[in-house]
Each structure stands twice: as structure tokens, then as C-alpha cells.
Computed example of a mutant assay.
Amino acid sequence: MKPAAAPLAPNTLPDGVVSLADHEHHARLVLGDSVWAYFNGGAADEITLRANTQAWQGIELLPRVMRPLAGGHTRVNLLGRELAHPILVAPMAYQHLAHPHGEQATALAAAALGAGLVLSTQASTLLEDVARAFLPDAGRGPLWFQLYLQPGRGFTRELVQRAEAAGFEALVLTVDAPVNGVRDRERRAGFRLPAGVSAVNLAGLRESDTAAPTTGHSAVFDHLMTHAPTWDDIAWLRSVTRLPVLIKGVVHPLDARQALDCGAAGLIVSNHGGRTLDTMPATAALLPRVVQAVAGDAPVLVDGGIRRGTDVLKAMALGASAVLVGRPVLHGLANAGATGVAHVLRLLRDELEIAMALTGCRTLADAPGMLRSSADVL
């Protein structure tokens, strides 16, 4: 393994960037067309991609006034640990495409801002280096490793053992992407990984394990689906790790209950950022039914389209235990490295506190009473 990298020098935040939308606009000027299509594109007609953001915007807050708010805070409890706030960085692949310091810069920023970090299996930085950058910060959030089950269980087991040894505190098994979505924007742009950027933690995975089929009629059903995760794999994964296992990509209430029956420690409601199956509902619409099905038996997190602190408050009001933020982090990373990521996370935290103050929420436990429903008469 490579030695720990030296501390990263901060970059300069662009002038006039005061919101996540500003970060997105500026990142479009920084990143090339191909990388932009990869990071920001969605599946097919990108209906779900757009719906994720629009759904949060369509939920209305109904504030209370003159409530005692002194001493309020954004703290939450997650898997037995108190966090400073409910914002985590979602797993995102190949962050070296956005900035030379890649996932290490994201880790340093997330740790400094007290945010949790979920590292992608397809990270372009060794998981050990990310852990060394993240874990020493006393005020950090949780460090989790996102896992795609690999065709060979032996390789998957070794990957899990590496994550454990490095200090990761949970596994996040992604189950909603056994194949890539139909990413038209990405294909039109001709995206290819450039030399020097790869999924370094998958080095050593045999090509024969992922090669195209030599028999059968369907590359999807006769090859890829033979490696797709099943409920039986949850039991196997739990048998080879001491870490709690969260399941990412659960959107149906029946799957939510089955995941808990299989021993999942938590669920993440996600439609993969609109990158897999287009015309799925937005995660804001999917979250309440999953929360209802779980009935408090495990934490339920959500990602997809979070762009404002008000979105974080709405997610908590709908029953989420925490939220994960993806593309805005990449935009901040592209704009100013670790400084840009820290700015994105700080903006969300500040906006969350302001939204809480303006709705009369002393703590996030008050959030469920702040949404307007059809029963409200104004």
C-alpha cells in the first residue's frame, strides 16, 4: 500500500459562489464535456434525475413562530453514535476526474465539517489512504465503505477485510444497479476513463470474472444477472464481517421489511441519482412509505436531489435519519478541491440551521410538524 499522502494545500474558492447552484454552474465551466456528462448525466430521458430535485422543491414548509429556540442544535443519533448534523457524503466513483486530489480531498473536507463519508467501491484512491485522511479528525462523522458484490466471493471478502482493517465502521451494500442504466448523455459525450484514473481498490479482480459471455443469447440475463446480488448474499456478507451492513437502493416497502429480516442495520432510500432506471419516482416520494414499513426498527437514510438546507429539513420531517449528498460535493471538489467540498457542506449545514430557526425547530425531532399537508387550512 502507498504511504499516507502529505496534507493537501487548500485551493481558492471562486468569487460569487454562495449556493450549491453556484457551485454547479462554476463546475460546468471547469470540467470538460465528457466528465460533466458522466458526473451530471442520468439514465435515458433523465426524468428521474430532474424529479429528484423538483420533488424536494415541491414540498412546502409550514413554520411555527415565537417558539423557544435557544440552545437548539442539529445533532442526530445514527447507529448508536451522536453526529453533529445529519449530512453525509454519498459514495461517488472516480473523484480524480474532478480534482487531482480526488477522494482524499473529499475525506479531509468531510472530516473537518463533521460530515459522514461513504467511500465508493469504485474510488480512484486507495481506501486505506482515504481512511488515514479521514479518521484522525476528532469531530468527524462516520466512515462507511460502499460495496458492490464482486463476481468472486473471495475477492469481495478480501475487500471487506481491507475496509475493516483500515477502520471503516459500516458497509453500505448497493443493490439497485446490477447493470448500468441507459445513459444516453454519457454515451453521446463519448465518456471514457482517462489514463491514470481507475477503480484502484478493485485491482487484481480477474478479467475472466467480468468478461462477456461466450454462450447464451443475452449479455444481461445470461451473464451479468448471474452475478447480481440476491437476499442470500446478505446473510453471506454478514457472516464474513463484524461491521453493520446497510442496504442502499431499497425503495419498496416489502423490500424494506425483507432487508431488515435479513439483518440489515439500516436502509438508504435511493434511485441511484437517476442514473439507473428512468421514470422511477423521486426519492422524496419514496421515502415516507419505506419509513412507514420500517416502523422505527432501523435507521432510514435518503439521497437524491438534496440541494438546500431546506431539503435536509424536509427529509428529516419525512422520517429520514440522515441524508446523503452526491453531485454537489463533486462540484465543490472540481471548483476548489477540499476547500470547495468544505464550502458545500458548510452551506448545507448553515442553511439547515437557518431553516430550523425560521420554522420553529429547536432540534430535528421537531421537524415532522413543519410540513404543510393537504389537511392544513391556511
Rank of each mutant, 00 (worst) to 15 (best):
128 E>N: 09
181 G>L: 07
221 F>C: 06
17 V>F: 02
132 R>M: 10
328 P>F: 00
260 L>Q: 03
261 D>K: 14
211 A>I: 02
136 P>S: 11
206 R>E: 15
341 V>P: 04
82 E>F: 04
108 L>R: 14
220 V>T: 12
50 R>H: 12
256 A>G: 04
96 H>L: 15
364 L>C: 10
155 F>P: 03
254 L>P: 05
296 G>H: 06
223 H>R: 15
299 P>G: 10
282 A>H: 04
274 G>P: 14
85 H>G: 07
204 G>K: 10
332 G>L: 01
350 D>E: 12
257 R>Y: 05
112 A>L: 06
37 A>G: 08
278 D>I: 09
323 V>D: 02
105 A>W: 05
279 T>D: 11
258 Q>V: 09
224 L>W: 02
178 P>I: 08
78 L>Q: 00
74 T>M: 13
341 V>W: 04
211 A>R: 14
161 Q>S: 05
73 H>L: 03
32 G>P: 09
77 N>W: 04
313 L>W: 04
168 F>P: 06
108 L>T: 14
224 L>T: 10
216 G>Q: 13
237 L>Y: 11
108 L>C: 09
14 P>Y: 03
75 R>S: 14
116 G>V: 00
317 A>F: 11
355 A>K: 11
163 A>L: 02
276 T>E: 02
49 L>H: 13
221 F>A: 13
122 Q>G: 00
335 N>E: 09
25 H>I: 12
357 A>R: 15
31 L>N: 03
7 P>V: 07
171 L>H: 11
121 T>M: 05
372 R>A: 13
71 G>H: 08
75 R>M: 13
160 V>P: 01
318 L>S: 08
264 A>P: 04
64 R>G: 05
323 V>P: 14
227 H>D: 13
356 M>W: 10
121 T>F: 00
330 L>K: 12
123 A>V: 01
352 L>V: 09
13 L>K: 07
5 A>I: 06
